[in-house]
Structures are given as structure tokens and as C-alpha cells.
Design a protein around this nucleic acid. Structure first.
Lengths: 343, 343
DNA sequence: CTGTTAGCGCGTTCAC
DNA sequence: GTGAACGCGCTAACAG
């Protein structure tokens, strides 16, 4: 039957509920003997405390939440491992929550904060910076990981932190590298999405690089994937359409590695060789970039450092040892086998 | 500061708390006018109900949980999308919880059941069937998706359901296909893990196929990856070690597509051509298999059907319209470009 | 249609 | 070291 409670345990042990509670929560002032006895009964009955009830009472739940937007995205996996370890080391509990595409991550955070008495919140992914006053409603420190601060208005910069690369800058770096190889007709695969996001930043970097090098952007080479930028299928379909359009290009720059993998396949299917006929570049530096054939040239985000810094920062803020900051890490241009000098 | 409650809202609106509660929960017997007024105040104050308190009281929370083992695994992504849609259609809430490698998924389920008043639980991934009596402690219907029932003892088969492919059979199918192409020295990349799991089943299928065809298994061709079978790196390293060992082989069968991608890369790095020099086969039929270069020959699990059937089944059981069942779907042998007849 | 009231299961005083 | 009582914020049952 679904309902064995702390009261039941107390009765069976012939003690009061508070004693059981103390045993459960590793309180100091309890006779080791009684504790042992109680734990034995708990084990035996398979009693499990009700978390809802606990959260309701508990005032000091050392707990932080990580909200990840987009469950289909393996991009965040390595970061999450770091987060888990760091929270454990600090003796904090971790609530890991995936936010669906249609959900507003800040709303979810608001709800979770009430429910779990959070001490801090980390956002990963999510396209925009939302209304700043909504974020301000969160009464605990907020850190955005892999989302730069340029995206938001400057006024509210001190109400949250960010740890990321400079997406526009890194994107420009990649396009400049391609230009340096002699490419002028550089297509870009990006997402058609108006709200400020890393996606927008990367597109801006592309445009800036062209401009700085006196290359007129060609609208027909700026291709927007249907929805998600973390879909190989989207990369494939969009590249195919690009090829079919007949517009000439010597390189394709994809704003995610996942898109790039789709692009590689589409090019192969069209009988185009990479990098001999077309150069392909990605962005993110995910593990898979290193296992492609050919290996993908990409911008590697230092996810490990970003994650570690995120954790350091949020705990510092929680403990009052730091105020909000905006930290930028450099990305690394990884030259793979998918790009080549043009003659 | 962090605590505006339902009482506060009631006071501000000059109504009782239950009226606010009714407005919150879309109860029918409430004056639309009052409701409107209340909702306005809620909006204005940014009030958010405390879920812990709600869960504590609510007796009928239409809610099911999905526990996924291994967050690093994109394998389940397509399934989750189906699950989300189905629960929404049924008017159920969904708790999606990732279970860490070191956690016992059944323990997590037990806890969650108490906390959220679940009506059903779905397990995805997780290597073994644990103690059957532990599962029996779960007072709500349990369905395992993509994990076959062969794994567990027959005695407790009627205390949960399974929806999956027959991993041993499908695995045998793949190896027989390779044998049919003329391969005799077929290496396998699997996980060295003793507890019953899909991994074990797939290895058994491999051994059975060899046996049925009069091929003596060669221990040196059975390679165990270090830990996770969903790591390209593991596939790469293990393949590399295999090549280095000098043992002859003409095909590599990997028990996951992810491993296979690592294998492809390792072979390329060793100057071996796929499929001319070595054939490579995977298992799972993930999206990425279709985007590899060369396209991967694999066994495609009908994840869409498995997911849909899982949802149908769990709701049927919840509603008392079905008892526990063990459903097996056929896998599909997808012939890609990574395997080739041997002369 | 609405207000009052009794717990949900637990952690936390505060006495003992 | 321990137990009794209170209340966390909310929903549900019951009166009105």
C-alpha cells in the first residue's frame, strides 16, 4: 500500500517522530543506538520519506538547479558531468531539469525555486535573454553558461552572470580563417530566428568577417535551417537545397557541428569531395567533430573550463564572496581535414 | 522575502483561499468574474504556487514518470518526444528524470512515486532488471522500454511490462548477414559487464550466429570497451587496440552505432578502407548511422513504434484495461555502405 | 457559487 | 537525548 509515513516508523520503533526525523537527517544529538535501531526499521519496511513534505518544511535545502534547454542536444552532456561533480563536492543537491522548446525556462525556474527552495540556478541553452525583470524575480543567483551577455541589455547585467565564449568573435575568427585560405564564396548554414541568441551572434560574426575583408555578402549563400540547429537532417536538407540552387560556393560554414555533419553527407551524395571541392567548417567542437570523416574544422568551445568556472562563480555568489560577473573564454580554432586552401 | 502564498492572494482579493485554489486549478464551480479578478492579481504579483505543497495534498495527480539512464545518450531523444506528446494528449503531466550511472533507477523511482504521486513509471536504459521484489514495491504500473523481458526471471514477469526488440535475435541476424557476405573473422566490440542486459543479449546473439554456422569464436576478436558503449572514443580506442593486436579480421560488429563511428575513424586512421578492407556494422539505427561516411550498416530499432506502444500500454494498465505484457518488435537490418561481400 | 476547516508528511521549535 | 505540538502551502470536503 502506498502510504508508510514517518509516524508509522516512529510507532514501530516506540519513539517520537522527531527522533526518526533526526535519524533521517543525520542530526548530531541523537543516541547512536536509537539511530541504528531506527535505520534498521526503515531499511526493513522500505520506508521512503516524502520529498514534497520535506521541501515544504526545510528552510536550508542546499540545492541548486540546472535548466537545460533542448533535450535532443548532446552538446551539454560534458558540461553536466562537471556540474554534477562540483555540486557533490560542495555538498549540494542538484536538480537537473530539461526545458522543452515550448517552455519558458525562466518560468520553469520560478516554479522550481518555490518548490525546491533553490539556492542558485544555472541556465544552459535557451535562445534569448527574456525580459530582464522576470529574471530579477528569481531570488537566487542566476548564471547563464555558454550564453554571452552581449545578448541582453546592459542595464540588467548585474542581476545575473554569464560564462561563455564570445560567439560573434569566434565566428568571425572561423570565417577569417576560411578567407585566409582563399575562400570568397562562403555559404553559411544558420537559423532564421530574430530574437537575440548565440545563433544571431554567430551570423553577425560571419557578416563582419566578410565586411572586414571587402567581401559583399551574398544573400543566396545565407541559408536558414528549418528549426533546430542541432539536427543532422536539417544540415543535410539545407545543404542539398544550396547545391541544387546552383549558386556557386567553395566553402560552407555551419554554425554547429551537427549541421556540418549533415552538410558533409549531402556533399558526398552530390559527388562533391571535401575538402578538395568544398571546404566545410563547423562550430562548437563537440566530440563528434573529431570522429567525422573527414575530421571537421571547427571552433572548440572550452566547455570544461566554462562549466568549472560556472560552478565556482555560482557558489561564490551564493556564499556572498562575489557579485555577478560576465566571463568570456576564448574558443580554439581546430583545423581538421575538412578545410583546404583554394587555388 | 521569497514567500508570497495563496493566503496572501486570497487576502488581496478579499476572498477565501479555496476560491483562489479553484481559480488556480480550473475548477468549474467558480464565478468567471471572481476567477478573472483573482487571475489578474496572481499575474500582477507574480505569485507561483508551491508544487511541494500541491503534491502533498493532491490525491489524483495524473502524472507519469520516465526515468532515463545515461544522460550522455542521444539514443533516447526520439523516444522522449513521443512520450511527451502522448502524455499531453492524455492530459497527464510528465516527470522526466535522468538517472545517473551510479544511481539505482528503481530507488529513484520509489522516491519519485512518493514525492509526486505517480500513476505510472517508464524505464529507459539501465542495464539490468534488479531485484524483482524491489520493483514490486512500486505501487504503480511499470513499463521497461527497449529492455527485453528475457533479462529477468520469469517469476516476476507479470509485475511489469516490457516493450523492446529481441536483442539476441536481432544481433544474430546482423552477424548472420555478415557471415552471408563471406565473413568468418568477425570481431565484436561490446561491453564487459556481467549483469544481464541488452549488451549481454547482443553478445549472445553474436556467439549463437557463429556457432550455428560452424565458426569457432575467437576470444581475441571479442573486445570489451572500457565502460560506456555510447562513446565514440571507446569505439575508437578499442578498435585501435584490435588493429594493433595483429589479429586478423575482415569485419567488425559493434553493438552500438556510436561505437561503430569510433571504429570507422580508427580504421581510416590506420589506412584501412571501409568496406573494401574491413566491413563495419553497428546496432541501434540511430540518426547518425545514416549520416556517416560511409553510411553505416546497422540494425534499426523501431523506436517510434516502441515508444508509442509503451505509452498505449502504460495508459491501458493504469486504466485497468490491460494486464502486464511483454511486447517484442522486430528490428530492421539496414544495409548501408559500410559492409561488403568478401571474396 | 463561496468561505471555513482539516489534514497531506514532514522538520522544527520548545519543553522535558 | 527525546517527545509533543505546531505549521510549511496547499487541496478537498463540508457547510453555507
Amino acid at each position: 500500500m502506498a502510504g508508510i509515513t514517518i509516524k508509522e516508523i516512529a510507532k514501530r520503533c516506540g519513539v517520537g517522530v522527531s527522533t526518526v526525523s533526526r535519524a533521517l537527517n543525520d542530526h548530531s544529538d541523537i543516541n547512536p543506538e536509537t539511530k541504528k535501531r531506527i535505520m534498521a526499521v526503515i531499511e526493513e519496511t522500505g520506508y521512503i520519506p516524502n520529498n514534497s513534505a520535506r521541501n515544504l518544511k526545510r528552510i536550508d535545502a542546499k540545492c541548486i538547479a540546472v535548466l537545460v534547454k533542448g533535450i535532443t542536444n548532446p552538446f551539454f552532456s560534458p558540461m553536466i558531468e562537471v556540474v554534477e561533480q562540483a555540486t557533490e563536492e560542495k555538498g549540494y543537491a542538484l536538480v537537473l531539469r530539461h526545458v522543452e522548446a515550448y517552455e519558458d525556462e525562466v518560468d520553469v525556474a520560478l516554479e522550481l525555486e518555490k518548490e525546491k527552495r533553490l539556492r542558485g540556478i544555472i541556465f544552459m541553452g535557451g535562445s534569448a535573454m527574456h525580459s530582464a525583470d522576470k529574471i530579477k524575480k528569481l531570488n537566487v543567483p542566476v548564471v547563464f553558461a555558454t550564453i554571452g551577455s552581449d545578448i541582453s541589455d546592459n542595464l540588467s547585467r548585474n542581476s545575473y552572470s554569464t560564462v561563455s565564449v564570445d560567439d560573434a568573435l569566434e565566428s568571425r575568427k572561423m570565417v577569417e580563417y576560411l578567407i585566409g585560405l582563399g575562400h570568397k564564396k562562403i555559404a553559411i548554414l544558420t537559423e532564421g530566428n530574430d530574437n537575440p541568441s548565440v545563433v544571431q551572434q554567430r551570423l553577425q560574426g560571419y557578416l563582419q568577417a566578410l565586411k572586414d575583408n571587402g567581401i559583399e555578402p551574398n544573400e543566396k549563400l545565407i541559408r536558414f535551417v528549418d528549426r533546430r540547429i542541432y539536427s543532422m537532417r536539417n544540415g543535410y536538407d539545407t545543404t542539398r537545397a544550396l547545391i541544387k540552387s546552383g549558386e556557386k560556393f567553395t566553402a560552407i560554414y555551419c554554425i554547429s557541428d551537427v549541421l556540418a555533419i549533415g552538410a558533409l553527407r549531402a556533399l558526398a551524395d552530390a559527388g562533391l569531395r571535401v575538402p578538395q571541392d568544398v571546404s566545410v567548417a563547423g562550430f562548437d567542437g563537440q566530440e563528434m567533430a573529431d570522429f567525422c570523416i573527414p575530421r571537421l574544422t571547427t571552433i572548440k568551445q572550452p566547455l570544461d573550463e566554462i562549466s568549472k568556472e560556472t560552478m565556482r562563480l555560482i557558489f561564490d555568489i551564493i556564499e556572498g564572496e562575489s557579485h555577478h560577473r560576465h566571463i568570456v573564454f576564448p574558443g580554439e580554432l581546430i583545423v581538421g581535414e575538412s578545410t583546404k586552401e583554394i587555388r
